[in-house]
């Protein structure tokens, strides 16, 4: 019983990590209809920024949020404006190539500047273990869980209760009708991309004190977050949260009972089952897959 509890705690913490990385990815896909393969590199660049701000000013890593959040937002906006928008009317695979290219460029840019070494952001007490019963987690992990839930809830409220949020949804559901309402669609796309990037900015602030930062760190996190986004239903924010938790729990249990070598097999096996029996994802309506332009 104790072991089950321990694994549940670990699974939820891991799930929260996937969730906070995935939310921005699924938002951008749902609205702009672009699969952003540079999403992990947004995370990586933001983590470097967290490291720099934290060590340069000697502040608590969470304090760097003041700088990292707006920087990530602007980075997202610029990528949409300068890279995606000029390709808006071309084929989807062109946009995919563009984001893959951006991903490779960012990795190599960071390798050029910082070298391949691993950088450690000061943990400032966030690696303090907390024991509940037989379970154990770090304070920083608990913060990720709280923030993941808050972000999903916050984005949901923003999208349903504010005029800007509603116009973002409207643009995602029918782009040309949104234009006919007087919505500046290219501005909406920029804001959405900015919010998606700001989500990884927040994720970076939470993750950097717990994990080492290197130019490849984005690749490490983002593979599973693609699994999460597809499994939850492309474009579904709640779906991403639920799928994250499922993947996190499966990961924890499979890793414990079957061994670290087999757990990926189980995770991707479940992923394949979802794709076979529910290809639109757990929370995806059939519409989410149709590209309304």
């Amino acid at each position: 019983m104790d072991l089950v509890f321990t694994n549940i705690v670990n699974g939820l913490m891991l799930g929260a990590l996937y969730a906070i990385v995935s939310v921005g990815l699924t938002l951008v896909f749902g609205i702009v209809k672009v699969i952003n393969f540079a999403h992990g590199e947004f995370l990586m660049v933001s983590m470097f920024l967290v490291y720099l701000v934290t060590t340069f000013f000697g502040v608590h890593p969470y304090f760097s949020l003041i700088l990292v959040l707006p920087a990530a937002f602007v980075m997202g906006m610029l990528v949409q404006r300068l890279l995606i928008e000029p390709l808006q009317n071309s084929d989807e695979h062109i946009m995919i190539f563009a984001t893959v290219g951006l991903s490779i460029a960012l990795i190599n840019l960071m390798l050029l500047i910082f070298g391949p070494d691993i950088l450690n952001t000061p943990s400032s007490g966030l690696r303090q273990p907390v024991n509940i019963g037989s379970g154990m987690f770090l304070t920083g992990q608990l913060n990720i869980l709280i923030c993941a839930i808050a972000v999903v809830g916050g984005i949901h409220l923003f999208l349903t209760r504010t005029q800007l949020g509603r116009s973002i949804r409207a643009t995602g559901q029918n782009r040309s009708a949104a234009q006919l309402m007087g919505i500046n669609v290219s501005w909406i796309y920029m804001v959405t991309f900015g919010i998606g990037a700001a989500c990884v900015g927040l994720a970076a602030v939470l993750i950097a004190p717990l994990y080492p930062t290197s130019p490849e760190v984005g690749q490490y996190f983002v593979l599973l977050s693609f699994v999460v986004v597809v499994m939850g239903g492309l474009g579904s924010i709640t779906g991403a949260l639920v799928a994250s938790m499922i993947i996190g729990l499966v990961d924890a249990f499979a890793g414990f009972y079957l061994g670290a070598n087999v757990k990926d097999l189980v995770v991707f096996g479940i992923f394949l089952l979802v794709l076979i029996f529910r290809p639109q994802g757990l929370f995806g309506g059939a519409r989410n897959l149709s590209h309304v332009s």
């Binding site: 005029q163 509603r166 949804r169 409207a170 559901q173 029918n174 919505i183 309506g285």
Partner: peptide
């Protein structure tokens, strides 16, 4: 060309 997953009132608000 309505916004299919929005309520009728939300559609009018977008208008």
């Amino acid at each position: 060309q309505l916004f299919p997953e929005m309520t009728v009132l939300e559609n009018l608000q977008m208008g």
